[in-house]
Every structure is written in C-alpha cells, then in structure tokens.
Simulated scan of single mutants.
Amino acid sequence: MTKTVLLLSLLISGLAFAQEDLLKDIDTIQTKNTDTSQPAFKALQIVTGQSTKLAAKKEWYIVVAHRFGDVSKGFKDFFGLDDASTKLGAIYGATDWLSFNLSRETNQKTFEGGAKYRLLKQNENFPVDIVGYNVMAVNTDLKKDNYPHLQFGDRLSYLTQALISRRFNDDFSLQLTPSYVHKNLYDPNIEDKNQFLAGLGGRYKISKRISINAEYFVNFDNHSFYKNPLSLGMDIETGGHVFQLLFTNSQINSDIGYLTNATGKWEKGQIFFGFNLYRVF
C-alpha cells in the first residue's frame, strides 16, 4: 500500500511539472505569433512592385508572372487573351538578409538581374522594415536597323529602391517605396533619362489564407505619355505556393518597365488581368 501511494505521488508530481512546462511552451508560441517582427507581406511582391519580404537562406523560388492584354478591347482580342506577356524568373536566398534574382520577360525581351537586402528589421525597438533593392535590365529587343549606332551600354537601365514597410497587426501592413530609375537609351519627348518615383502599397488580410493588396506609384518626371502604375491584387496562400491574381494598368512585368512604361487608363477600362505564381524549394 505504501509503495502504491509513493508511486502515485511521483506520477502526480511528474504530471504537474509536465503541465507547467507545457503551459510555458504555449505562452512562448503565442508570443511569437503576435510578434511584430513577423514579415509585413507574405509574398515577395505586393502586386507587381517588390515587398520587404526576402527569400530565406538557401531557399529557391521559381517565379511565373503573366499579364494578358487590354480587357477593354472586348471580343476583338478575346478580352486580352490574344495578347499576353510572360516573365520567368528565379530567386535565391544567399543569406536570411540577402537574395539574388534573375528573370526574362517576353515584352521587349528584357533580362533583369537584381539584389535585395535587408538593412533594418521591424521589432519592439524599431518601427519599420527597411530593405534595399537594386536591378540592372538589358533590353535585347533593340535593333541596329532602328538605332544604327547602338552599343551594348545603350540597352541597359537601372533601378534603385528603398522598401520601407510596417506591419501594424496580423491583418494590415503598409509600405512606402521611394525609387530611382536611370535609362541609357530613352526618348526625351516622352520620358526622362533619370526618373524619380514614390510608391505606396498595402495588404489587408480577409481570411486565413487570402489578402487584398494594392499599390500606386507617382512618377515625378512623367511627361504624361506614360501613366502612373496602379494595381489591385489578391494573395492566395496554398502550401508552398503564393498565388497572386491582379488587375493593373501596366502590362509589363519587369521591375523597370512596370514603373516607367504603364500605358493603360483605369478610367477608360484599359487594364490588364494577370497573375504571379511563386514556388519555393
């Protein structure tokens, strides 16, 4: 009888300590879930513009982005399905704070290579994430028949961005994106060699796996031929995929082309439907 009582006492004591440890673990998990240091965005792009999210160390992303044609043309082009632009790309996380990307788009046959790097991270002592983003693009569609003195350097353009975001809570995040674009070859009648832009984008979560996103960029050196890009989108999380559906007035997928060569007018229904698909490995 004494042995039985002693055994039960030890068992109850062990359960009590185990329960206390379990509660501590639960409290720790809850703290992490509500930590403001979590990413402000689930996808690497808000809509077409870059977000402050980076690929993790040794992660590979395959990116497929598609923009159909102008939906306002109706049945003539089957609401844009006859005229599409596609971008294929890859992203590699060299570290948790640095990633590299390479892509190619059918529109203007443009190759882009870039680097994305975290400068400061939002936490209880600092209010925002700050990420740098740099891109060099090569327009391989330019021909010497049209530009007899064309040199390789004329094909190049550059983008520098500061991505500044704040995650206010589990559902809502905002980002400010000052940007600078330099083009070696340009038409002075419709654009400037050096262009300065400011973008504002945001994400609002409407369910566990779905959010509504929006972004708008103002080009301070716009000659009115090209339009300021305005885009609306939806993020859908499905396991290893992030699928983004979107509407935009810029058919071009490349970072520089999207920012500086938008042609559609929202008020006239000149918008392009498309999607971004990310697969992480």
Rank of each mutant, 00 (worst) to 15 (best):
76 K>E: 14
3 K>Q: 13
124 E>S: 14
209 R>Q: 11
80 G>K: 04
113 G>M: 11
152 F>E: 09
179 S>L: 13
74 G>N: 10
193 K>P: 06
263 T>E: 15
26 I>V: 13
90 A>P: 04
87 K>P: 02
157 S>V: 06
232 L>F: 15
118 R>N: 09
117 Y>K: 05
56 A>S: 15
218 V>E: 06
270 Q>F: 04
16 A>E: 13
207 S>P: 09
120 L>H: 02
238 T>G: 03
189 N>W: 00
12 I>T: 13
39 P>A: 00
189 N>H: 08
106 T>Y: 00
269 G>W: 02
230 L>P: 05
143 K>F: 03
41 F>S: 02
250 S>N: 13
177 T>V: 13
36 T>G: 08
209 R>K: 13
245 L>W: 00
169 N>T: 10
159 L>A: 03
65 A>M: 12
270 Q>V: 05
149 H>D: 15
183 K>Q: 08
179 S>D: 10
55 A>V: 02
158 Y>M: 07
201 G>N: 05
104 R>H: 14
145 D>F: 05
68 F>V: 06
140 T>H: 09
111 F>A: 12
214 A>P: 00
152 F>W: 10
108 Q>Y: 10
199 G>W: 06
137 A>K: 00
211 S>A: 15
59 E>V: 08
165 S>I: 10
246 L>D: 01
38 Q>L: 15
203 R>D: 10
276 N>E: 01
104 R>W: 08
80 G>F: 04
119 L>A: 13
243 F>E: 07
259 L>Y: 04
135 V>P: 12
52 T>H: 00
46 I>M: 02
179 S>N: 12
246 L>A: 09
176 L>M: 11
195 Q>W: 07
88 L>S: 08
10 L>E: 14
45 Q>H: 11
197 L>A: 06
207 S>C: 06
201 G>P: 04
193 K>N: 10
53 K>E: 14
84 A>V: 05
118 R>A: 14
210 I>S: 11
212 I>H: 09
106 T>S: 12
277 L>Y: 15
68 F>Q: 07
161 Q>S: 13
150 L>A: 08
43 A>M: 02
96 D>G: 06
4 T>D: 15
63 V>W: 04
151 Q>C: 05
22 L>P: 04
137 A>T: 03
103 S>G: 14
